[in-house]
Design a protein around this nucleic acid. Structure first.
Ligand SMILES: [Zn+2]
Ligand SMILES: [Zn+2]
Ligand SMILES: [Zn+2]
Ligand SMILES: [Zn+2]
Ligand SMILES: [Zn+2]
Ligand SMILES: [Zn+2]
Length: 303
DNA sequence: GAGTTTGAAACT
DNA sequence: CAGTTTCAAACTC
């Protein structure tokens, strides 16, 4: 615990030129102020510069309304923008930076790849080249001629499977090593992924894989669910342990199904909080699970 | 620790 | 949009 994460596990930045006011900074990006555990230089991401932080945040948000929408990363369609109704498909498009990684040289084998770092497989949304993501390769028939292969051609088993159902680090009890490619704990819940789903609309179900302290929805159904819909890139990792005070606790608790309860905060950004080690700002679309496990939600395909 | 590689974020 | 630059982390030695 020397330099990296401090007690709460949150990663700390070491920014030198961004002043911790850009998304380059993980602290800023995840809605936290920097603190003594950070090794940043010329940091403005602290309560003393609340105004500046907010200003920068808004600027970025104006550019990409979903920039701070955890996990979804633009997935949730914004009312106004970017719903491409193309031909017969309505594709939610992120404000920028479409879904998925864009790896050119790492073949998604290392943490240079966001998907890999998030411990999720690549999906069709990724534009990686020569994907070899250990957590699930992007379907490569895609690379060849997606357009020409017709479903009847390939066996679903072979192609559909590896792709998404390959999870990761599971519940790691101590000392149990485990192979990312084979094991994993699945929890499938039958909740819909719609905005109001949290109230139990039985619609589509999404699975999740539980990890240490997080849950990833497992995009098991190919194109409908991007893999890392949940915690993509640390910036999307909002830890449950840090819940801002003024959050609005809907009666959601009742909605919960199994051991999770959901909390969502209706929006508008709130004022940063320091005392509380929670994120300084929350986003409207964020949904959290309490109960040891975290995020998840989604369904891009949710038309 | 220094130096390189990498791809997201920012910028034009 | 695409091309380029900037950036901090991941990685290598
Ligand atoms: Zn920083
Ligand atoms: Zn920081
Ligand atoms: Zn900082
Ligand atoms: Zn990748
Ligand atoms: Zn990917
Ligand atoms: Zn990939």
């Amino acid at each position: 615990m020397s330099s990296t994460s401090s007690n709460d596990g949150r990663k700390r930045c070491k920014c030198k030129k961004s002043k911790c006011l850009k998304l380059y900074c993980e602290c800023f990006a995840t809605g936290f102020y920097c603190d003594a555990s950070c090794s940043c230089h010329e940091c403005f991401n602290n309560p003393d510069y609340e105004d500046i932080v907010e200003e920068s945040r808004q600027l970025i948000a104006s550019r990409n309304p979903n920039a701070f929408s955890s996990k979804i990363h633009g997935l949730i369609e914004s009312p106004t923008s970017n719903n491409v109704e193309d031909g017969d498909q309505v594709k939610p498009v992120a404000g920028k930076h479409r879904w998925g990684c864009n790896c050119k040289k790492s073949m998604c084998q290392k943490k240079y790849c966001e998907c890999n770092q998030a411990k999720v497989g690549c999906s069709d949304e990724c534009r990686c080249q020569g994907c070899k993501n250990a957590y699930g390769k992007k379907a490569d028939y895609n690379v060849y001629n997606k357009m020409q292969l017709v479903d009847s051609e390939f066996s679903p088993n072979e192609f559909n499977n590896p792709h998404n159902l390959t999870p990761l680090t599971p519940f790691q009890h101590n000392g149990h090593q485990y192979d990312p490619l084979t094991s994993g704990t699945y929890i499938s819940s039958s909740e819909s992924a719609n905005s109001d789903m949290m109230l139990g609309t039985p619609n589509q179900n999404f699975d999740m894989v539980t990890f240490d302290q997080q849950a990833y929805p497992n995009a098991s159904m190919n194109q409908f669910t991007p893999p890392y819909a949940t915690n993509f890139h640390a910036r999307h990792l909002h830890s449950v342990m840090n819940i801002p005070p003024m959050m609005d606790l809907p009666s959601s608790s009742t909605a919960s199904e199994s051991c999770f309860s959901m909390i969502s905060w209706p929006g508008s950004s709130m004022t940063p909080v320091t005392a509380f080690s929670g994120p300084t700002v929350m986003n409207t679309n964020d949904i959290f699970y309490t109960g040891g496990v975290v995020p998840c939600l989604i369904s891009p395909g949710n038309k």
